[in-house]
Design a protein around this nucleic acid. Structure first.
Lengths: 187, 187
DNA sequence: CGCGTAATTGAAAAGTATCAACACTGGTGG
DNA sequence: CCACCAGTGTTGATACTTTTCAATTACGCG
């Protein structure tokens, strides 16, 4: 499912209007570009203005696993800014993507001085955590068919927007299995 | 794996000494008791002083899936306090458990007024999220044998402390499969 | 048209669940 | 002291699900 965070996007947009400094800058990426790379240091926090990215890990055995698809208002790089570790996942643009980029040091300042911003981040983190936990519990406890039906129900147009390979990587299965199950539930 | 958070426990312990009010109170639970129930409102935030709890979801098909085992210093109930939703999981004592209990309203106050506490929570959330994401990516991308070896490597005494059924629920498999794989890697 | 990428499919192999039967353990009461 | 019981763990046989792998088709674009 493609995650969104309208509240955060609105807050950042308004914030940008008030502070005309260059602490928050816009940046563009085209399809296939990596915005954040795995196991590298991250110096900025990003909030998506438009477009879709995938957040995925490449495992030691070469398998890609997609954590989430990020849409408008979703934030990334914040985990690395908060705990100072290298990124554990890779963020890649799926189509044309525009982001707001915040320097990590300024992000820290905002967390300390702007209570509303702080609350937005706390909420964003807790929503991400809830979503991740619930999704994985469902994934592990249900059949492939249930998982696919749930995905289609939550986001009917996903199959048109995202490649089969990516959907398979999101569900943690092979494209072959995806096709087999799709053919059993479609007709 | 059993998660811990020494920093947070230390901070709360010190905080408790300074403020001798009844805003943070100690509470005990015995093995099998539910501390937080699924899909219920939560009015407090808990930090584990001693003992082990399991954090699990019961799915609509009756399957239990264990998210994490919580040890000393781990916090729960904070997600519900932050976003105001009902609990999505159940917290149950595995052995004798002592916790510090913080009223949700006081927790909110602390977040606003105590910057250090706020940072502790931000770090706790981001660590939980990183851990959850990495674990599930690994789980979905590797064989059962790899998952089990990883678990044993991370926490060698787990099998002695926790029931087979719980370990199976943690890995998202049946006890039968757990036994089969155990017998292939042990001798 | 021809090329590269993505999508599709079949058949065999590997992995996992299901289910029922059996073993082990500690506690209880006759 | 033994029989019984409940909970937990173990195991084998079978059915089902998913992966693997290779071959084939479909599609977009210079």
């Amino acid at each position: 499912m493609i995650r969104k965070n309208a509240d955060l996007l609105q807050y950042i947009t308004e914030k940008l209007l008030k502070e005309s400094e260059d602490t928050i800058i816009a940046q563009s990426f085209s399809s296939g570009e990596k915005i954040v790379d795995q196991k590298k240091r991250v110096f900025s926090v990003y909030i998506i203005k438009s477009g879709i990215t995938k957040c995925y890990l490449t495992e030691d055995n070469g398998v890609d696993f997609i954590q989430e698809f990020f849409g408008e208002g979703e934030i990334f790089g914040e985990l690395e800014a908060i705990n100072g570790e290298v990124s554990f996942c890779c963020i890649e643009a799926i189509n044309a993507v525009e982001v707001y980029k915040i320097e990590a040091s300024y992000f820290d300042q905002l967390l300390e001085k702007d209570i509303t911003f702080n609350k937005h981040i706390l909420k964003a983190l807790s929503k991400k955590l809830t979503y991740t936990a619930v999704r994985h519990a469902y994934n592990q406890s249900h059949t492939l068919e249930d998982n696919l039906l749930r995905l289609i129900h939550q986001f009917p147009t996903l199959i048109d927007e995202i490649s089969k390979q990516d959907i398979a990587n999101y569900l943690g299965i092979t494209p072959r299995s995806l096709n087999r199950v799709l053919s059993t539930i479609k007709p």
